[in-house]
Write a protein that binds this DNA or RNA. Structure first.
Lengths: 197, 197
DNA sequence: CTTGGATGATACTTTAAAGTATCAATTGAT
DNA sequence: ATCAATTGATACTTTAAAGTATCATCCAAG
């Protein structure tokens, strides 16, 4: 098996499924530039392909989030870095991993992968609270949910061409930190933004 | 044809599709408590049913948003009322109307229905800016996108039981107005919240 | 050159769900 | 009480896509 081909199939599948969640294996094969038979050689069923896509997205997430999360930066610094690098992942993240099917009873492997990610973002929000960057009275669930969804929203806007790719992460951060944080968190953020440009 | 039955089919379809976007007409019929044949009498094809669901959601949206939008309240007051009434609609809104299928090339009737809604929320955001409730430098697309997605996020959290139904709209409003607005908008919002309780 | 694994094309079977047709039972209005 | 309309059950056809099997070709390593 060829790892490059495998990756290409996954990448193209994501592109196809973003357009139409019910796209056939036939179309996917065409789009990936491989024969139908080859597609089934790499992924023994459609279900397996979907799992593979989601696990792949999980890998990407982990590759971005974990190193930053385990660094010893202050939490708000971590947040800036994570969001900045997560927004461009939007396509594979949201579309492929957790949005193709509104997934109750998801495959356990996928669940486990997602769990790891969400544990880290939850912890990060706790750290932000502890650090005093976020208002203490907000429910943790809301912090996590709003962050995820703002990242998704930003990606959508980039994708549709309404917002510049470089601007998008800052919009997320601004909305998130100003929306949940203290005023000086915002002034801090503005400085960060200037520094990054 | 019985309008009540029609409504029930639509309602139950939404519930089913929220669990599994690929659910069969068979299952939908069972869940709605009608015979398979009857289901096809009311909706001549699966595609028609999906359109009907989305148009139904469009109606609900319109029923909530339009009267408030066309009132002569100040924009931020409108925003509070719209969000408060929109969050509980979440299920039919997001799940059924615009999330079941990631819909490029959507049915034109559905597009038209959605257009009306999004025009109004866009205009509302403009009004909020004009009123000085929202920061002038934020892209309009971001205001609209973040609002929609925060409402969706709030619904999800209510649905999953992590956030109280009555609290959810205020979280959206707080994140949105604090995230995009001026400090005094936030103090105004807090007063509103107390008044509503 | 030649050989073995990977590929693409294609033809085939299977399956699941859509959609149709029919009919007896039920219901509700007059 | 009757009759027209609506329904549920069920059996049927159709369709689209999944999944399988086969074989000729191609390419890279020896």
């Amino acid at each position: 098996m060829n790892q490059v081909t495998r990756e290409r199939i996954i990448t193209q599948s994501i592109a196809c499924l973003a357009q139409n969640a019910n796209i056939s294996m036939d179309e996917i094969a065409k789009s990936a530039g491989v024969g139908r038979a080859t597609l089934f050689r790499y992924f023994k069923s459609r279900a397996e392909l979907l799992v593979a896509i989601k696990l792949h997205a999980g890998e990407q997430l982990k590759a971005v989030v974990s190193p930053i999360f385990h660094s010893d930066l202050p939490a708000r610094e971590k947040m800036v870095r994570i969001v900045t690098r997560l927004v461009p992942l939007g396509a594979s993240l949201n579309v492929s991993a957790y949005f193709i099917y509104p997934m109750k009873q998801e495959d356990p492997r996928v669940m486990a992968s997602y769990q790891k990610y969400s544990d880290q973002t939850r912890q990060l929000c706790l750290d932000l609270k502890a650090e005093g960057s976020l208002n203490a009275d907000l429910p943790l669930a809301w912090l996590v949910a709003s962050m995820d969804n703002l990242i998704f929203a930003a990606w959508e806007q980039v994708e549709s061409g309404d917002i510049a790719p470089k601007q998008a992460p800052w919009l997320v951060l601004r909305t998130f930190l100003a929306g949940h944080g203290t005023p000086d968190t915002v002034t801090w953020l503005n400085k960060q933004k200037e520094a990054h440009q």
